[in-house]
Design a protein around this nucleic acid. Structure first.
Length: 560
RNA sequence: UGGGGGAUCGUCUAGUGGUAGGACUACGGACUCUGACUCCGUCAACCAAGGUUCGAAUCCUUGUCCCCCAGCCA
């Protein structure tokens, strides 16, 4: 097995670089901008960056790319740190900020000016765009491109000193306005922003651009492999241009991989922001959000997320991964560990007419059918129960193994009951079932091995714990909402459904975020934010696989 | 019509001149006090056309399609 571990192309490069002695140790970084919450796409980057380093005994920096004050916020810094560590990664003492290097970045800018490789441009933003040319036509030199080194030095010093308003000047690299790669057409290095920075406060009014700050930060930290997504591929020549001027002792190499896109979700920060700001979701941590915080609140285990991105792999091919892949990882992670419980989401009253009124039995039930070591619990049984409305049909199709008039079914961990009478209201809606139980069929006793085809879950009415249960579905109704002209039009109106559910009483003590399986329904956990002792709120993490849904479809079709 | 990338089952992914394999899904079956889990089985792919070769997903040529780039965002 170990010799067949698939090694993605990045791990191959890293392996080769270690082998050849190019680097004694691997140093990576995860460089989020603190302007939003991390999402499923970032999980990929986090696992890759921290993964390749830890696998090789290397180090990883968590570096906040805070070069654009005003867009960035401390709230996001906290959230990001929490997300990364929840995912299981540890940056040790390597928590940094691009702003830690502002002075050094500035010094590099000055030395570039001195080498006549950068100049202060006084064109307006609009003019710069015009001068830049188009994808098919070369740009033209700015008239300010010929300024002397002395003048540039003076102007840049005064930019820093705050003598100019936003937008009045910009520092540009002097590369090639005719370059076919637009990133090389004298890219901006510094712009003026009279704005308070969340860390440096008012110390600066000029801020470095991403390409400049990011490349230099990589160099300063001794990053060996700078892993980023495909859209930065044509920034690499600029990355390399900067490194060529700097000549750092340890030269980082940028390698790009494709983003991970999940079907039926968005990962554009801008659009995620809109979902939050417009109140379409309850916030960044809404359990329907593809954010790490949302998925954590929903109840997805960190291990499932790690498993998911590892199955997705690292390549350069555009991916749009099916939701089922993620859900499978979640089920797989929870399947062996989540204790089993019973809960009824759409209650239908059942009265056991031959069971003594007022009598209560505590019936033992396994916490996990495949893992006896997880022990047993007791659930109360009495003459009035709740069962799932779906588990009864007056006129069922073939292969319906649940309750029907005159039919028998086993109550999980309890008795076999027979449906004797169906009570309906004026509109024909079933309001109650009168059943009789077979006292000799109690689970684990008597002739309890008597077979009936179906087993359903139930909760004793008198003992039931009331809870609000939130059923989540995909936020969008199309596989790739990124492609939609307006995502509002492809929102899934049924992405959240709330049920007044009946839970077995033992669930009262369940802690927030602790996952259990409601048998036959799915995995659930108390919502970490909204669950209260006197008003329980549960999230459905993921459903169980449901082959009945398929059979039912086929049955209904064959009858028509 | 500039530059940079990418095309292998429905989805994700292995393959590095020698039997196209795995995971998820789908489908069929076994088991079942969860229509779950588990187990067994089936369907299913090399973008196209040429070329090189005993042999090509892999090398060459020519096409086709898809993605990214014209922020003083990252």
């Amino acid at each position: 097995m170990s010799d067949t571990i698939p090694r993605d192309f990045i791990r191959q490069i890293i392996h080769d670089d270690l082998e050849s002695g190019k680097h004694p140790e691997i140093v990576t970084r995860f460089p989020p901008e603190p302007n939003g919450y991390l999402h499923i796409g970032h999980v990929m980057s986090i696992c890759l960056n921290f993964g390749v380093a830890s696998e090789t005994g290397g180090r990883t920096y968590l570096r906040f790319d805070d070069t654009n004050p005003g867009k960035e916020d401390e709230e996001f810094v906290h959230a990001i740190k929490e997300d990364v560590s929840w995912l299981g990664f540890n940056w040790g003492d390597r928590l940094t900020h691009a702003s830690d290097y502002f002075e050094r970045i500035h010094d590099v800018a000055v030395s570039l000016i001195e080498a006549d490789l950068a100049y202060v441009d006084s064109l307006s933003a609009d003019e710069i765009r015009t001068y830049r040319g188009t994808l098919t036509e070369p740009g033209r030199n700015s008239p300010f491109r010929i300024r002397s080194v002395e003048e540039n030095l003076d102007l840049f010093r005064r930019m820093r000193a705050g003598e100019f308003a936003n937008g009045e000047h910009v520092l540009r690299a002097k590369i090639d306005m005719a370059a076919p790669n637009i990133n090389l057409r004298d890219p901006a290095l510094y712009r003026i922003r009279h704005e308070l920075h969340q860390i440096t406060g008012d110390a600066w009014c000029i801020y470095p651009m991403y390409d400049f700050a990011h490349t230099l930060s990589d160099a300063f930290e001794g990053i060996t492999h700078s892993l980023c997504t495909l859209e930065f591929e044509d920034h690499r020549p600029l990355y390399d241009w900067i490194l060529d001027r700097l000549q750092p002792p340890e030269r980082p190499r940028q390698i790009e991989f494709s983003r991970l896109n999940l079907a039926y979700t968005l990962t554009s920060k801008r659009k995620l922001n809109e979902l939050v700001n417009e109140g379409i979701v309850s916030g960044w941590t809404d359990p329907r959000m593809p954010t790490i915080a949302g998925m954590r609140r929903r109840g997805y285990p960190a291990a499932a997320l790690r498993d998911f991105v590892s199955r997705a792999g690292v390549t350069k091919k555009d991916k749009l991964i099916e939701m089922g892949m993620l859900e499978n990882c979640v089920r797989e992670s929870l399947g062996d560990t989540a204790p089993r419980r019973m809960a009824v989401l759409d209650p239908l009253k059942v009265v056991i007419s031959n069971y003594p009124g007022g009598q209560v039995e505590m019936l033992p039930a396994m916490n996990h059918p495949n893992q006896p070591e997880m022990g047993m619990r007791e659930v109360p049984f009495s003459s009035e129960l709740w069962i799932e409305r779906d588990d009864f049909m007056i006129d069922p199709p073939r292969k319906f193994f649940r309750l029907k008039p005159g039919g028998e079914v086993r109550l999980r961990s309890a008795y076999i009951i027979r449906c004797d009478e169906v009570i309906q209201d004026a509109s024909g809606r079933v309001t109650e079932l009168r059943c009789s139980y077979d006292a000799d069929t109690r689970s684990g006793t008597g002739s309890s091995d008597r077979k009936v085809k179906g087993t359903i879950h139930w909760v004793s009415a008198a003992h039931a714990l009331d809870a609000s249960v939130r059923l989540y579905d995909r936020l969008f109704s199309v596989a790739n909402p990124n492609k939609a002209q307006d995502f509002h039009e492809v929102l899934n109106p049924a992405s959240l459904e709330t049920r007044a559910a009946k839970l077995e009483p033992g669930l009262a003590g369940l802690a927030a975020g602790e996952a259990v399986q409601f048998e036959r329904l799915g995995y659930f956990c108390p919502d970490p934010s909204d669950d209260k002792a006197d008003a329980r709120v549960f999230n459905r993490i993921v459903t169980l696989r449901d082959s009945w849904a398929k059979i039912e479809q086929q049955a209904l079709q064959s009858e028509t």
